Simulated assay, not measured.
Amino acid sequence: MCEAKWDKLLKIKTSGRDNSHSDQYRFPYEPTPYRVLERLANSGLIRKGDTLLDYGTGKGRVCFYLSYQTRCKTVGIEYDERIYKAAQENQEHAVSGAKTSFTMTCAENYPVPLEATKFYFFNPFSVEILQKVLARIQESYYEKPREIELFFYYPSDEYVSYLMTQEYLMFEDEIDCRDLFEGNDGREKILIFQML
């Protein structure tokens, strides 16, 4: 199903790229393609009892789609007030709006809820901010040990280098998405890590 059809089915508006407030630390809004989200939802890794945090949620596509398809609860974290308002507007009409919530704050300041079990990143910010976010997730994990999985779609080389050297993270698997697009781009994948 094409992007516009999914947006229509979910009763949301999430298309388009927005780099009006991006800088060297916070990257432009660009929604994850629905084809990629479909593959993640079909992996069976996200279930009804999970709470998924989407960092740099933008207009909320990941939250609305995954809560619709897997029945999980989702929380979107967004720092840009204008884009955050678009996510809130989407929530008012979205099919899965009741299972979704949004918080406007910088990701590194967000206290991770103890029920959060899944974490999604589509290169929302620099490695410097990622380090602080992962420290927050770790704090939450130590406070309440549980199975935690982190998903990194289209990871940058900097992300991969950093993630692979962290002792508290174990590389679990990857979901190959190269066949969904032309050009055989090696970054078209979702890397999955487990917190130890």
Rank of each mutant, 00 (worst) to 15 (best):
Q24T: 13
T14D: 00
D179E: 14
G186P: 00
L10S: 10
R17H: 04
S67D: 02
I190M: 00
E188V: 01
Y79N: 09
R82A: 07
S126L: 10
G183K: 01
V112P: 01
R136C: 10
E108A: 01
T105D: 14
P145E: 08
S43V: 10
N42L: 15
E81C: 13
T14W: 05
Y25A: 04
I77Q: 05
L130C: 11
L10K: 07
Y65R: 08
T117F: 10
G60H: 08
E92Q: 09
Y84L: 11
S15K: 12
P33M: 08
K13D: 05
C72A: 12
P113E: 08
V160Q: 06
Y159E: 12
Y110D: 11
A41H: 03
D7W: 02
E149Q: 15
G16C: 12
F125N: 01
S67A: 15
V127M: 08
G76N: 09
Y68D: 08
N90R: 12
E139V: 02
G60F: 07
R17T: 11
R17D: 09
Y55Q: 05
I46Q: 02
P31S: 12
R39S: 03
Y55E: 01
N90D: 07
N19W: 07
F27K: 10
G76H: 06
S156I: 06
P33C: 01
D80C: 14
T14S: 06
S156D: 06
A94V: 05
S43E: 11
D54W: 02
S22T: 07
T14L: 03
T32W: 01
F181Y: 14
D18A: 01
V112A: 04
E147Q: 09
K59D: 03
Y29S: 02
R26V: 10
L53S: 03
S96P: 11
I192C: 08
K11V: 07
